[in-house]
Amino acid sequence: MKCRVCKQTAAVALPSHHTAFCPACFAAYFARQVERAVHNHRLFTPEERILVAVSGGKDSLALIHQLAGQGYNVTALHLDLGIPNSSGPAREIVAAFCAAHGFTLRVVDPAEMGLSVPEVKAAVKRPICSVCGKIKRHYMNKIAYEEGYDALATGHNLDDEVARLFANTLRWDRDFLGTQGPLLPAQGKFARKVKPLCRLSEFETAAYCFLHDLRHGATACPYSKGASFTGHKKLWEDLEQRSPGSKTAFYEHFLTHGKTAFAPLAHKDREPLQDCRICGAPSNLETCGVCRIREQVFAVKEKAGADLCGQGREAKNSL
């Protein structure tokens, strides 16, 4: 297979585009896709400050590397979720990567604020992936808003967006269908959220990292087993294999034709937002979702403490 541009031996074949590229031409193609997303969806301008959420995985590292390469003003934000055998190595990868490339790194540790994910998992009855996502979004928004960044960028790629759109469509979730896309404008205390990798698949971000020698984490979160998005991605992989380009068509046509139908209906029945009585974050209720989770964690800890005291008293009495 030859590179479509320079006719050298190809390194990356892209059936969805009926093409293949050598390493140098693939890098140019990758940059063009990001430029196109930023330009077409008006994600941000070269003068703006971008906070990039960096997990240590291939997508977020490729994103910040590419945006910096295009001259954008980027700062990395990493959340240490306190997950055993996962968060520690991820934090080390991010710290080493940022040091090697000269990126400013901001680390937030929700565990220090009573929200370590293992303790949260023990305290709540809901699926931990949804709760963990809520905590991450809360702190990413908080830092972006309070520290005056113009946009918060995440490494969501085309596969992530297609899996999410598919899940939202299965439920005909008009709130999410009306707002899904590479740009969520700033509103009140919500910072602008952007997804500059929305035109690139995870195969492409993995190839980008390999060709640029970006060392990234690949360890699965120990709590992510059975997550629904993974199953949806497999279904879409089957479809893409039979009909290359399906993912791009599904997502891009949704953005141009489908989203506009749902946008007027999104959050129509939502209670007006107010400031959380504890942390001041925007919330539908008096106390925001994250502060309610923290209260649940404290309640479980207090109960465990009281039970331990009770056991101690019983043991003492039996002597």
């Binding site: 190809a10 390194a11 990356v12 195969f203 060709l211 992989e237 893409e240």
Partner: peptide, 16 residues
Amino acid sequence: RQSQALVIRGGELLTQ
């Protein structure tokens, strides 16, 4: 499948 994995030989990415 081709889109699910990178195939690497001696530091080089290989197409299928």
